[in-house]
Amino acid sequence: MKTISLFKVSAVCVVLAALIVLMSLGALTIGSADYSLKQIADAVIYGAEGPVQIVVYNLRLPRIIMALEVGACLAVAGALLQSVMRNPLADPGIIGVSAGAATAATTILLLYPAMLSAVPLFAFGGASLACVLIYILAWHDGVDPVRIILSGVAINTVLGAYNAFLQMLNSDNLSNVLAFMNGSLSGCNWEQIYVISAYSLIGLICGFVCIKSANILQLGDEMASGLGVNVSRVRILLSAVGAFLAAATVSVAGMIGFIGLVVPHIARMMVGSDYRALLPVSTLLGAFLLLAADTLGRTLVTGMEIPVGIIMAATGGPFFLYMLRKKGRVSGS
């Protein structure tokens, strides 16, 4: 592992933080109506009543905070899971989080519409259960990354089939399911912010506590065992933190892909693979990218919002290909 340059990492973090601030200010000012910073300050800080306050305080500000938190959580989850799997293609979807959440949400949305308000709770539960199931299936005298991936593929496929079947039977009323599947920050309110903030705080703190373990896993199983680390236990711990972070985001924002996959790679290109640098940079970068994508999605077409999941898929895929071509080989550790 390269020795990280504290100065370089700090510089990158400062630049990313500055970009986040600028992007946030930009997202506050632009939308269906553009407001000046003075108008925004009057509305948010001085509580001046009027349409500006309603738009900025009730719509844009919670949405910006949500985008930052969801982006940060997904990026950290992706980074941790890439360490667990020692696979550069690992992301929260591989451990069944997305499929489990989608299954639970689809079931409620289509079969029990009276319980709509409980969708986030069920989505979280579904995500967690799917993840637990995958690890149980993958267990064989310990947890092996390949077994996790294979179990993940199997469970994702089965759950995907169930979701598709359910949608086929209830094709009259799919718009809400599609909104969940595409991932969207639309309609975000302060109540959701309080919930996601609590989850994010717990999850991110746990993630940062796991930095040392993530670095040790990168040395390989034999080396890690030689250092006295229980590799299976560490894998499960890191996976649990990753799953918790991902499940929390899916429950409030639906399925948003590519953040967990692409952001850690970009962060590696900037600061290397040491998780002491990688995780903070991934956190900030994930927050910035999701905010940028959401802002683009809500301003690109007048009168229409493009869900952030679609924006991320449209831009993340080609960017990932670009990174592959540029690097020559994919860095997974």
């Binding site: 269906s32 738009v55 309609g187 809500r298 009168g303 229409m304």
Partner: peptide, 29 residues
């Protein structure tokens, strides 16, 4: 908008609509 009969509500845009009537439909029985 004539692109699609159904679109995700742009909440900021909706503030300018000033409808006299709101019809709300959903999946409830």
């Amino acid at each position: 908008n004539t692109e699609s009969s159904l679109a995700l509500l742009d909440r900021e845009q909706a503030l300018g609509y000033e409808p006299d009537l709101l019809l709300c439909v959903g999946g409830s029985a």
